[in-house]
């Protein structure tokens, strides 16, 4: 597998708001390599640096120390800016603030229009992108009448229309209700599986990490943990020390183990957990 995103000793600080105040060090040396085609979830509480990291992946922010490469392109290289942005699409938190047009299909067409794609090709891409997120029937609708989850799917379609290799969802589920969140997650998983698009999902909902290929936990501007969901969530004490919680399934297994029941900590989903508990009690 080849490398999609890579950072080396990445550092970033936000300037102080007022004189005399310290600047905020958001990233303190992040070394990270994300493979093409993987589904990576980045967890962390507010202020852990996870969103700052995400904004380096398509040159919205540029490193103050260290390097970021997108498919081998250095993000500091201004001549490659459009190429970088075309390869790594971003979906943000607030669905209302990333929709440009008052007709769904016009909005999805925005990026290819900017890239100077010929008209017939734009049409094909828009239809494909809307199909990929399951929103074809809403092509002529006004976005402000859609639900939060639908708006985020439109935003995803707008990114797919650039035919990117990677989509970064920067807390894209934070403002949605459970139904909307599920819509976005299912869409992201399908794109990963069917189109082999690399997905980087930034979130603080532990449950969204359940079936990721890899979970990265950020804390205090650094990578605190990195591994499969099973590996990461098994480290219950560390996760709690950071101020995050583990899924209730893992919490249950952890508590049972402390009481001497022999269950593994790696059973994340409801069914796996029930299997493990049932087996231990038999």
């Amino acid at each position: 597998m080849s490398t999609m995103l890579q950072t080396e000793k990445l550092e970033y600080s936000y300037p102080a708001l007022e004189e005399g105040e310290e600047q905020t060090r958001a990233l303190r040396g992040v070394d990270l390599t994300i493979e093409k085609g993987s589904f990576v979830v980045v967890l962390g509480h507010n202020g852990s640096g996870k969103s700052t990291l995400a904004k380096h992946f398509n040159a919205i922010l540029l490193p103050m120390g260290g390097k970021v490469w997108v498919e081998g392109m250095d993000t500091v290289d201004e001549t490659r800016l459009l190429d970088i942005r075309r390869r790594v699409g971003m979906v943000f938190q607030n669905p209302d603030n990333q929709i440009v047009s008052n007709v769904v299909e016009e909005d999805v067409a925005f990026a290819p229009e900017n890239l100077g794609v010929p008209t017939e090709e734009i049409r094909r891409r828009v239809d494909d992108a809307l199909g990929a997120v399951g929103m074809s029937e809403f092509a002529r609708h006004a976005p402000h009448l859609l639900s939060g989850g639908q708006k985020q799917r439109i935003a995803i379609a707008g990114v797919i229309a650039m035919e990117p290799a990677c989509i970064v969802l920067d807390e894209a589920t934070a403002m949605l209700d459970p139904v909307g969140r599920q819509e976005v997650l299912t869409t992201a998983r399908r794109l990963n599986r069917e189109k082999r698009i690399t997905i980087v999902l930034i979130t603080h909902h532990m449950n969204e990490a359940e079936d990721a290929d890899r979970v990265i936990v950020m804390d205090n501007g650094k990578i605190a943990m990195d591994g499969t969901p099973q590996e990461v969530f098994a480290r219950v004490e560390e996760i709690e020390a950071i101020g995050l919680t583990v899924p209730d399934t893992v919490q249950l297994l952890y508590d049972l183990r402390r009481n001497g029941v022999d269950v593994p900590l790696s059973a994340l989903t409801v069914d796996e957990c029930a299997d493990a508990v049932a087996a231990a009690l038999k």
Partner: peptide, 15 residues
């Protein structure tokens, strides 16, 4: 709640 779903799954498994 996820924990209620675990309980349901356990009942299905005879616990």
């Amino acid at each position: 709640p996820q924990i209620t779903r675990v309980a349901m799954a356990l009942r299905r498994r005879g616990v």
